[in-house]
Amino acid sequence: MTRYLISFLPWIAYAFVATSDDWRKGALVGLGIATVVIWRDRKSGKNWDEMVIETSAFVFFAGIAWLSYAQPDSDLVRYGPALVDAWLALTAWGSLLIRRPFTLGIARKLVPEKVARTEAFYRTNAVITQVWGLAFAAAAVVLAFIIRADAHATTPMIVVKVASFVIPVLFTIRYPKAVAARRAHQTA
């Protein structure tokens, strides 16, 4: 699970810095952390398919950093929290569209190679990625509505952000165990 947390570190840092300070600084901090995480991961031998979220963070924060300086008064700044989740939803759904669920690369390192090559392993990761995609998409919509109603509604935004992360994390932990138990029950 630590690998997932490190993957989301640029997003978490951006949320703290952009909320407490300035979206420009938040974008630069997110970009900097994404760059360091990717550099560290590549240096340690990680494959690109293990770094989908990190790579997505780099692209997102490079774009947001550019926008924050090119158009500092952009209306998009107001919707930053919703944009983050919309981008993450696009990342999750895009990885499914190309049949490379973003959880697959990380999960593959946690199981024997024989298991990682099975269709069941792929399907399990596709379901997990769908849950992440749904959580991100739902958070983006809810956050956009909250922001539109009251851009300074920090507490509801934090609740949505935490829920949209904790729910898929818990699902990611529990679902593979449930699939394995179901499979064991069927073969018994």
Rank of each mutant, 00 (worst) to 15 (best):
P168V: 05
A107I: 01
T91K: 03
V160T: 04
Q186Y: 09
T19F: 08
A126N: 06
V131Y: 02
L90F: 04
G45E: 03
P168W: 00
N125M: 00
F16M: 13
A86Y: 10
R123M: 10
S95P: 01
V59P: 01
D41M: 03
F16I: 09
I38A: 10
D73M: 11
P156K: 05
T155W: 14
L143R: 08
T124C: 12
F145W: 15
I98T: 11
V127M: 06
G105F: 00
P81S: 05
D73F: 11
Q71T: 13
R117V: 06
E50G: 02
W11M: 08
K43S: 11
A116K: 05
V179C: 02
T55Y: 05
K46V: 06
V142K: 05
A65F: 01
F165W: 07
P101F: 01
A27F: 05
L31R: 02
Y69W: 15
F136N: 03
F60C: 06
A140T: 07
A139L: 05
W39Q: 11
A27Y: 06
A188N: 11
T2M: 14
A34K: 06
I167C: 04
I173K: 13
V142D: 08
F165H: 08
S7V: 03
W39F: 15
N47F: 01
Y4W: 08
L9C: 04
T155N: 08
V179H: 01
A188M: 09
V84M: 07
R42M: 14
F165M: 14
R24G: 09
V36R: 13
T2L: 14
V111P: 06
F16W: 12
R100S: 02
T187I: 15
A137H: 07
D85F: 15
R174L: 15
V37G: 01
